[in-house]
Simulated scan of single mutants.
Amino acid sequence: MSNHSTELETRGELDPAPSPERFENPGLPPHRPRLSDTSPEGSKRAERQVAIIFGISILATIAGVWGYFAFPMDAGVGNVRYSTLSIGLGLGIGMLGIGIAAVHWAKALMSDVEVVDQRHPQRGDDATRAAAVADLQAGAKDSGIARRPLLKGALITAVAIAPLSFLVPFVGNLGGSWNVNAMRHTMWRKGTRLATDPDGRLIRPEMVTIGSVWHVIPDGLHEVDDVLAEKAKAIVLLVRLAPEDLKILPGREDWSYDGIVAYSKVCTHVGCPVALYEQQTHHLLCPCHQSTFDVADGAKVVFGPAKRALPQLPIMVDDEGYLAARDDFDEAVGPSTWERQRPIRGEDY
C-alpha cells in the first residue's frame, strides 16, 4: 500500500475492510482433569494439605492470644513490643492460612468444570429459580463439604477462633484504669538533672543557645534496672527560645528558665518520638503522622491528629548551675486514651 493510501486510511477517508457479521463461537476448551479428579490418593493428599493449612491458621490464632496474656502491656515497654508482635503475627498468619486453605480447597477439590450461564431477566420464572437452587445444592454437594468431615471441622474451627485475635485484646482492655498504667510516672523528680542523650553529659543553661534542640534523659538513667522502659517514658526535648517569643501559660510561670523549655518527646497521638524542630515557627513535628506542636505556646497542637499538647517538664537551675527538673510531668506522657484522666500533681496513685 502506498504512503498516500496509508495516510488516507489513518484519517478515515478510506473505508475499512469489511467485518463479518458474526464470529464463530469457539466454545469452551476441553476439560483437563486434575490429579485429585482421577486419583483417590491425590484427592486425599489435597484434603490433608488443606487441613494442615487450616491447622496452621488455628495454631497461629492460639499463639497470638497466648502472646497477649504472656506479655501484659502494663509490665513494661519491652512487653508492649512482644505482645504487639505476637498478636500481629497470630492475626496475620491466622487469616492468611484461612485464605490460602480456601483457595487450595477450591482449586484442588471443588469442581473446575467451566459452565456458561446465559443472561436472563433479573427475576426468572419459578422453574428457573428452582433450577438455580438445585444448581447451588449440587455445587455444595460437589464441593465435598458433607463427605469431608476433616475439612469441614478444620474450616469451622479456623473461622470460629480467628476473631479471637481481634476480640481478646479489645475485651481484655475494657474497664482498664489509666491510674495503674506505668506511664503515669517517670524517673523525673525534683532535683533530677538533665543530661544529654545518649552520652549523659550534664547541661548548663549557657550551653543551650537560642534555636538549638537538645535530646535529654534523666541523669542516672543508665543505673536503673529497665533502662529501655524508663527511657521510653522520660525522653525530653529541650529548646531555647528568645524570652519574648515564649508564651507563659497560667500556673507555669516558673516551669522554664530564661527561654529554655522542656517537653515530653513522646507524641500524644500514638507515641512516636517528636524530634523535628522548625526554628523559625517554633514548631515540633512528629514524623509518623505529622502532628505539629507549638513550642512557644505550651506545645499545643496546631496541626495533625494529636488532640493533646505535649506534657511539659518543669525545669530550674540547681545550686551547682545545672539544669534540673522541678518535678515529674504534671500528667501522664504518651498517647491519649478514652479512659485517661488528667492527674493532679502530688496525687497518690
Rank of each mutant, 00 (worst) to 15 (best):
Y277A: 04
F293T: 06
P250Q: 14
R252V: 02
W255T: 13
P314M: 10
P250D: 15
H269Q: 12
Q279M: 13
S291L: 09
M316P: 00
Q290Y: 04
H269K: 13
L276K: 06
K300Q: 13
H289W: 02
S256V: 11
A296D: 05
L284Q: 08
E278K: 13
H269I: 10
L313R: 03
D254T: 14
D294I: 00
E253H: 13
L284G: 04
E253Q: 14
T281W: 02
V261D: 08
C267I: 04
E278L: 12
G251A: 12
D254V: 14
E278R: 13
G304A: 08
C286G: 11
G251I: 08
G259Q: 03
V302C: 04
P305H: 00
T292M: 07
H282A: 12
K307H: 04
A262K: 04
S264D: 08
H283E: 10
H282E: 02
H282T: 07
C267V: 01
Y257N: 09
Y277F: 15
C272L: 09
G298I: 01
A296Q: 05
L285E: 09
Y277G: 04
E278Y: 14
V266R: 14
Y263K: 01
G271K: 14
D294S: 10
Q312M: 14
G251W: 11
K300M: 10
